[in-house]
Simulated assay, not measured.
Amino acid sequence: MIIRLSIACGLIAITVAIQALFMSAGLHALRRIDERRKFFAYRHPTVVTVAWVIYLIFPIIIDVCLWAAFYYVAEALPSFEEAFYFSTVTFTTVGYGDIVLGRDWRQIATFEAVNGWIIFGWATALMMAVIQRLYFREPEPGRHRD
């Protein structure tokens, strides 16, 4: 059990690092767009918001795949497809319960659910920060939204 819990903690650390790298790169790209194309984000906030939300889904997919790979390699679930489905339902904290882990693995799934809760909260906070910047900043002098 200690080994499995250690692996779960390791997976949480890896997924947090993945999320941090994607978020850092995404924020850097948004800053560059702001610097190079001064008014693009200001004039097209919906386009930037949609692109940002889609971009933030990619690290979540990677995170889910890592957890699914763990379940499959550890033989906690019989196929990668089932492991991916279970991981998606667990990471998103939907928890349908149509696929469940055996008694030896149940506690690990709670770690994944907590991991998903943290990642989604973090991504939501960042989405809101970007949305506030796009929609609620003061217009540049002499400029207005079209």
Rank of each mutant, 00 (worst) to 15 (best):
A29N: 00
A51H: 12
A109E: 06
E75D: 13
P45K: 04
T93A: 01
Y72A: 02
I60D: 10
H44M: 08
L5Q: 13
P59C: 04
D63A: 13
W52R: 10
Y85R: 11
A13W: 06
W52T: 15
L27T: 05
V47Y: 05
I7P: 01
F22E: 04
T46Y: 14
R37P: 00
F111Q: 03
T46G: 15
L134S: 09
L21Q: 01
F111G: 08
T88S: 10
I131V: 13
F91K: 02
R137N: 13
G116D: 07
H28A: 14
A69L: 10
F120T: 11
E81C: 00
W105S: 07
A17D: 02
Y96F: 14
R37G: 00
R106E: 12
V130S: 02
A29T: 00
P139C: 05
E82M: 14
V94F: 14
R43E: 15
E138D: 05
W67E: 01
D98E: 07
P45Q: 02
M128S: 03
M128A: 10
I2A: 13
F84K: 03
T93Y: 00
F58L: 15
F120K: 11
L5K: 13
C9T: 10
L77I: 11
L56W: 10
D104K: 11
G116N: 07
I57A: 15
L5W: 09
Y71H: 02
W122F: 12
F84D: 01
Y42V: 09
P59F: 03
V50G: 05
I2E: 13
S87L: 10
I12P: 00
F84L: 14
L66M: 09
F91C: 03
M1T: 06
L11C: 06
I118Y: 10
A123E: 08
R143I: 09
G10Y: 03
F136A: 01
F84H: 04
H28W: 14
I60T: 15
F40T: 04
F120Y: 15
A74P: 06
V73M: 12
Y42I: 08
R145I: 08
R36C: 03
S6F: 12
Y55G: 14
D63T: 02
E75K: 15
A20W: 07
Y71D: 00
L5A: 09
F80W: 09
G10L: 06
F39A: 07
R103I: 08
W67R: 02
T46H: 15
K38Q: 12
Y55Q: 11
L5P: 03
L56Q: 15
Y42A: 14
R133N: 08
E75C: 06
A68E: 08
I99W: 00
V53W: 04
L134Q: 08
C65Q: 02
T15P: 02
A17I: 11
G95E: 07
S87N: 12
W105M: 10
R143S: 10
M127R: 08
L30D: 02
C9W: 09
Y71F: 13
R145W: 13
F22K: 06
F136T: 00
R143Q: 14
I61T: 14
I118D: 04
R43A: 12
T92H: 04
S87H: 11
E35S: 09
F84P: 02
R137K: 13
G97E: 04
E138M: 01
I3F: 02
Q107M: 08
L66C: 09
I62W: 06
E81N: 09
V94Q: 13
T93L: 01
Y96K: 12
V50T: 11
A74T: 10
